[in-house]
């Protein structure tokens, strides 16, 4: 392969590639893909065969059943209420959790270690799992949804904000401590004000995610528009399903635009 380099002395030989690593990486990815494709019955043939059926479904789902819209207003409002409640409670609870998980502010290693792992475990479970759990615990309805979003909000804000807290300038907090201030005074006057804009920005971001998530919480009985979606879906009322999906998308986009414009003004 390297006639050129062998021909003339003094030229460095091309270093051998790390074939073990390359083969291992390519092999692992191919194997995973083969295993996954087989496991889930992935087949383009099946996709092609089913396309006519799919077209029938799409034809049936259009136009949306506009007459159904008045019955959506209540559930849509409830969805937003769930999102507000979840974001506010979760946003408040996230503050201590984020502070204790920030390496530069935490009062002790043990607290940091426990809090950090608690935070990571919260993050492993998807929003709908929390919704199922709370629906089982407190019964079907919007309260279960609000509690699920509370946990989800804590997971989102505490992770992001603890990173912002770790990036603050420690000069002022240390000065407060040096002047005899307590740990709480250090937080209140030295640390938190610096990262406050980040907190507001993350809280708004969490609210956007929550509005999105609150739309589907009802699929497992946790209140909001999702509960209507679930009943219409299971009876294959696709024109109504389409109407619900469209109104959800429009509402989500409106909330995102508002939140985005507030966040832009903050930064």
């Amino acid at each position: 392969m390297n006639e050129a380099s062998r021909a003339a002395p003094g030229r460095p030989l091309r270093p051998a590639r790390n074939w073990t690593l390359i083969i291992a990486a390519v092999g692992a990815v191919s194997l995973m893909t083969w295993w996954s494709a087989r496991g889930i019955g992935f087949s383009l043939v099946e996709l092609a065969c089913n396309l006519p059926g799919g077209r029938r479904l799409l034809v049936e789902s259009w136009p949306p059943d506009w007459s159904f819209f008045p019955r959506l207003l209540g559930p849509l409002l409830e969805t937003l209420q769930i999102a507000v409640v979840g974001t506010v409670i979760g946003g408040i609870l996230a503050i201590p959790i984020a502070v204790l998980a920030a390496r530069n502010l935490t009062p002790g290693f043990l607290v940091w270690f426990v809090d950090r792992n608690f935070m990571n475990i919260l993050r492993t479970l998807p929003d709908l799992f929390w919704a199922m759990l709370f629906a089982a615990a407190v019964g079907f309805g919007p309260i279960a949804g609000a509690l699920a979003l509370t946990v989800f909000t804590i997971a989102v804000i505490s992770k992001l904000w603890s990173e912002s807290l770790e990036a603050i300038d420690m000069a002022v907090p240390e000065a407060v401590r040096a002047a005899g201030g307590s740990w709480l005074a250090m937080l209140q006057f030295g640390a938190i004000p610096q990262a406050l804009p980040h907190y507001v920005s993350y809280a708004l971001y969490a609210f956007e995610l929550n509005v999105r998530a609150s739309m589907i919480l009802g699929l497992v009985g946790a209140g909001g528009i999702g509960m209507v979606l679930e009943t219409q879906r299971s009876t294959f009322e696709y024109p109504r399903v389409t109407l619900i999906v469209l109104s959800v998308l429009v509402l989500v986009l409106i909330i995102e635009k508002i939140s985005e414009s507030i966040r832009r003004r903050l930064v």
């Binding site: 050129a4 380099s5 030229r11 460095p12």
Partner: peptide
């Protein structure tokens, strides 16, 4: 191979053939 040879000579002309890889 001929083009790799040209590239190597170009590197030698500016004395950094040792850094080729």
């Amino acid at each position: 191979a001929a083009d790799r040879e040209i590239a190597f000579r170009a590197l030698e002309r500016v004395s950094i053939a040792d850094k080729a890889w």
